[in-house]
Simulated assay, not measured.
Amino acid sequence: MSKALVLFAHGARAQAWAAPFERLQAQVRAQVEAQSLECAVTLAFLELMTPSLPVAIDALVAQGADDITVVPVFLGQGGHLLRDLPQLTDAIRAAHPGLRLQVVGAIGEDPGVQAAMRDYCIRSLA
């Protein structure tokens, strides 16, 4: 089984907006490699930037991935994650019936991420 991880972000018109997500992708990829995990790590966007989630997953499947986890790099479960993402994943599953596709919760709802954001906010007072 070939694994892949897709960091799924919103997208924006300004190319510079993607920089933190590209850094996150590079950091995750480096950690995956440091742990000798066999897992492709890619970045996909909902809109305004490329690749889209379906295009990114099509490419991963073409490279042999059959177990893909999507991590929404969103602060919370808003309309995009409640409506748009399920529609996208339904279409992806229909296009790739043998694919194991897992979508985890929004990154901003993770307790560890919340703690890191809390600490950042407190440090901003200094």
Rank of each mutant, 00 (worst) to 15 (best):
M1T: 06
M1F: 07
M1S: 13
M1N: 05
K3G: 00
K3M: 00
A4H: 00
L5E: 01
L5G: 00
V6N: 06
L7R: 04
L7A: 04
A9M: 04
R13F: 07
A14Q: 11
Q15N: 04
A16N: 11
A18L: 03
E22K: 13
E22N: 12
L24A: 13
Q25Y: 05
Q27D: 15
V32D: 13
Q35L: 15
E38Y: 05
E38P: 06
C39K: 14
A40Q: 05
L43K: 12
L43E: 04
A44H: 04
F45C: 08
E47L: 03
E47P: 09
M49P: 03
S52A: 11
P54M: 12
V55F: 10
A56T: 01
I57K: 01
V61I: 11
A62G: 12
Q63R: 14
A65M: 02
D66W: 01
I68Q: 00
V73P: 00
V73F: 06
G76L: 08
L81Y: 07
P86A: 13
P86I: 12
Q87M: 12
I92R: 02
A94F: 02
A95P: 04
P97E: 10
G98Y: 00
Q102K: 10
V104L: 11
V104C: 05
G105N: 09
A106E: 09
A106T: 05
G108E: 03
P111E: 11
G112F: 08
M117G: 10
R118C: 05
D119E: 14
C121D: 07
C121M: 13
C121Y: 06
S124T: 14
S124Q: 15
L125E: 06
A126D: 15
A126F: 12
A126P: 13
